[in-house]
């Protein structure tokens, strides 16, 4: 079965609180009844203009972050005007509110939050830091995700996803790479997600983290057998290597001039296919493929550079 990508459409304020409350130091101050409200966008909003009465372009579906500026502005309003604005604000179905710098919301604000059932939190982080952290976390929550059948390794900083049919030797290949001192991200089942809309990241499911299944040996705890240096939690995918039975491969790349890509979650990742046959040292081949990929990202394409030189030389000889 082909793996399917999933993308969240929304998360509830409660999910946000549960998942990130500790890291953001969130404390729930009011509006508990509204924890099922939905956050629809993976970013935050500072509602300064809204609190000033301008609601025409109000990004209501986001987490609303209030800092010193908003606090000071609200304080400057007359009491009835302030209550009116706060009500206008809560009426817009905002999912939740976070005060930065441990600002204590006024009683009036908390009363309205309870009345409109909008959760209000407090965070000790300064506004800028809170916004950055919360945006990153939300971006991850909303990132497209999928599970790939493949083994992920880190070879000298190059993240390589090794794919191929069951039994083709993915795990054995990874094992040999571990013996060479490289590290494992995940074996067989790899979780993928897109970071920041442009980087494909891979990690392992928590349940099977750092475990490897090797035919004939069973489960191996990589962290214990090879040491903590041999494991890492996540890694950007720089290269996809597909191991294929040599007998089933019709077109084997011989020069490597054309870069093949494989699209995962909308990101095009360089792809090479390696024919598997007895006696081929797969780990070494994958290692060299990773190093060659590193050269390419540094701007050196061996095959292309050689070919350009060759064509120039043949042209000169034809003239001379």
């Amino acid at each position: 079965m082909e793996p399917k990508p999933t993308t969240l459409k929304a998360i509830t304020a409660e999910e946000f609180y549960t998942a990130h409350g500790r890291q953001l130091g969130l404390k729930l101050e009011a509006g508990q009844a509204g924890l099922n409200r939905k956050i629809h966008e993976a970013t935050i909003n500072r509602p300064g203009l809204a609190l000033a009465g301008f609601f025409r372009y109000f990004a209501w579906a986001r987490v609303q972050v209030l800092g010193n500026a908003e606090k000071t502005y609200l304080k400057s309003l007359s009491s009835p005007e302030r209550r009116g604005r706060i009500r206008d604000f809560f009426q817009r179905r905002v999912p939740c509110v976070v005060f930065s710098r441990n600002i204590q919301p006024t009683r009036e604000f908390l009363e309205e939050a309870d009345a409109y059932r909008v959760p209000v939190f407090r965070s000790p982080l300064v506004t800028g830091r809170l916004i950055n952290s919360a945006t990153l976390m939300l971006d991850l929550d909303f990132a497209p995700k999928m599970t790939e059948h493949g083994t992920m390794v880190d070879i000298l900083g190059i993240g390589v996803l090794i794919k191929g049919e069951s039994g083709v030797g993915k795990s054995e290949c990874a094992l040999a790479l571990l013996e060479r001192g490289y590290s494992l991200v995940s074996d067989d089942v790899t979780r993928m997600y897109v970071l920041d809309g442009r980087e494909l990241m891979a990690s392992s499911p928590e349940e099977t983290r750092y475990l490897m299944e090797v035919r004939g040996l069973g489960l191996i705890d990589v962290g214990r057998v090879f040491g903590v240096g041999a494991i890492r939690t996540e890694k950007r995918v720089d290269l996809v290597v597909t191991l294929r039975d040599a007998g089933k491969m019709e077109d084997v790349e011989r020069v490597g001039m054309e870069q093949e890509f494989q699209e995962i979650l909308g990101i095009a990742v360089p792809h090479v296919q390696i024919p598997v046959s007895p006696g081929r040292d797969l780990a070494r081949l994958v290692e060299v493929a990773a190093l060659d990929q590193k050269l390419k990202t540094m701007g050196h394409n061996t095959a292309k550079e050689f070919n350009d030189r060759l064509i120039a030389r043949m042209r000169n000889e034809a003239r001379g």
């Binding site: 011989r254 095959a303 060759l310």
Partner: peptide
């Protein structure tokens, strides 16, 4: 025109 460069060479060998 370009002579036996990488692509023709690969095709020949294949």
């Amino acid at each position: 025109k370009q002579g036996i460069h990488a692509r023709p060479a690969a095709l020949f060998v294949k």
